[in-house]
């Protein structure tokens, strides 16, 4: 664990000194701010429901941008060799890098707590759905960062990593459209289960469901496992 934390700190340092990370954060806050203000001005409603719904789409762009560098860059520049000869396991590397991206994402979310604070000063919003909305945003981000990490571990090219991650996320985003909301049978049911959007919706509405928690945990766990595998494959070569 100690090694993983050292790697996490290294990743965080590189995030906080990289222009790209700041640009991504600024882009995220700009879109969220714009959505927040326009929804508030249009509905005059003390709720983050519509804003979070729309803001979640930005995760499709933000997660690949934050993760594309993680392993791909080290493979391109060759610094991966240093990491491999260091006395750390692949699992520690993967967990450390993942936690690094997660903590950076969390700091972006912390900055977006400005919206609930504004609502609380203007009126009396319902706290429950705002809390679950942010929890949903965090879990969605955590799952997407894990997917991004897999993509980054599979290639030396950051652009390929970003596009690959984006494609997988988009697929998980829209998979329920293929199933339709009401079709019965095992295949539509499975497709619906895979949809991150449906799961995220529950959180935004104000509902926490153990099924959604298990799903996100499984998705993250599986992606981290695949990343470890990918890293091991690089090492074996």
């Amino acid at each position: 664990m100690k090694n993983a934390i050292i790697i996490m700190q290294r990743e965080l340092r590189s995030y906080f000194t990289s222009t790209i990370a700041y640009t991504v954060a600024a882009f995220f806050l700009f879109i969220c701010g714009y959505l927040f203000f326009s929804v508030l001005a249009a509905t005059q409603e003390a709720s983050l429901r519509y804003m979070l719904h729309n803001a979640a789409v930005t995760m499709l762009l933000i997660a690949p941008a934050l993760t594309m560098r993680l392993v791909a860059e080290e493979r391109r520049s060759g610094t991966i060799e240093l990491l491999m000869t260091a006395p750390v396991t692949d699992t520690q590397v993967v967990i450390g890098k993942y936690l690094g991206s997660l903590v950076f994402f969390l700091s972006m979310l912390v900055l977006s707590l400005q919206y609930p604070i504004i609502l609380m000063r203007l009126g009396s919003p319902e706290m429950g759905p705002m809390f679950t909305g942010f929890l949903g945003m965090f879990l969605l981000g955590a799952a997407f960062l894990a997917i991004g990490l897999v993509a980054s571990s599979l290639t030396k090219n950051q652009i390929v990593a970003a596009i690959g991650a984006f494609a997988v996320m988009l697929l998980l985003w829209i998979v329920q459209w293929a199933a339709g909301p009401t079709a019965t049978g095992w295949l539509p049911e499975v497709l619906r289960q895979l949809s991150v959007l449906g799961r995220f919706d529950n959180f935004v509405k104000g509902v926490v469901d153990t099924r959604d928690l298990v799903f996100f945990a499984s998705l993250i766990g599986f992606c981290l496992f695949l990343s470890v595998r990918a890293l091991a494959a690089v090492k074996a070569r």
């Binding site: 990289s18 640009t23 600024a26 806050l29 701010g33 714009y34 400005q114």
Partner: peptide
């Protein structure tokens, strides 16, 4: 605040770091 000051602030910080 939400659309201009905070996002631009973050961006400027990034430029400063660079």
């Amino acid at each position: 605040t939400t659309i201009l000051i905070i996002p631009v602030g973050v961006l400027l910080f990034g430029v400063g770091v660079w």
